[in-house]
Amino acid sequence: MTWNEWLLDPNPKSRAQSRAGQAWLQWLRFRRNHLAMAGLFITLALVLAAIFAPWIAPHDPIAQSLADRLQPPLTPGHLMGTDDFGRDILSRILYGSRITLYIVGLVILTAPVAGLIIGTVAGYFGGWVDAVLMRITDIFLAFPKLILALALVAVLGKGMENAVLAIALTSWPPYARVARAETLTVRNSDYIAAVRLQGAGATRIIWGHVMPMCLPSVIIRVTLDMAGIILTAAGLGFLGLGVQPPDPEWGVMISAGRKFLFEQWWVATMPGLAIFLVSLGFNLMGDGLRDVLDPKGAR
């Protein structure tokens, strides 16, 4: 029996086989979507660039060389040109992918988790717990996100960690909403009642039985939000509130290139292209994933 046959067996012998078969079918459907595959490719390229930056970057991203400042693209040794300190832009972009991934990683490890906990607790207990938690969620949803993030950074101080915190604090409410909606649909199901009859406490039920049910829809949302996180982080960097120079964050690089926009256009253009490409990649991939995992919510 080949792998393919085993995966597509209409009568799976084990739960693992059936699950693997499902995933394989979804992958086949995902693969047919060329745009989604392009997105996956871009995302993989980002991850590879972040991992192998020290080996593939032609220059040190921070080392200044005033003799080579503001070289145009395609200069020998500087494919994308150099900035006003003579730093190689390509190398800075490659290293910048590490910062971008780090920020995205931190945010998606915090905001969805917080939203998941708040949403499942609100949905499971209902009553006044639900009312209070959802009111708080609504308040945060009613806030203009970027401006709240700005105000938070102003209070917490500039820097990458605080930018991450500000983004996380402003992006959990949608996850709470999604998780609550899912919780409400499973809360009264028989298997939850069965677990309860076996004497499991609320924490155990929420953690072990409700949260896993909410995960798929939260994950879909996360993929679709990743581009937004990148854009917000870059925006904060651009305003000088996020990552601080000389770290090669893409938003900071654009901000630095702004001064020479009309004379040395590449300094601001190249990192912007990187942001655009990566966030397009996440969007394409998220779109494709959603079509595969949740055909009803295709919008």
Binding site: A227, G235, F238, G251, A268, T269, G272, S279, L280
Partner: peptide, 15 residues
Amino acid sequence: GLIGYSVPVFWLSLI
């Protein structure tokens, strides 16, 4: 539309 979603607005403004 997807490009509109993905492009950093401050960069697009500069360009």
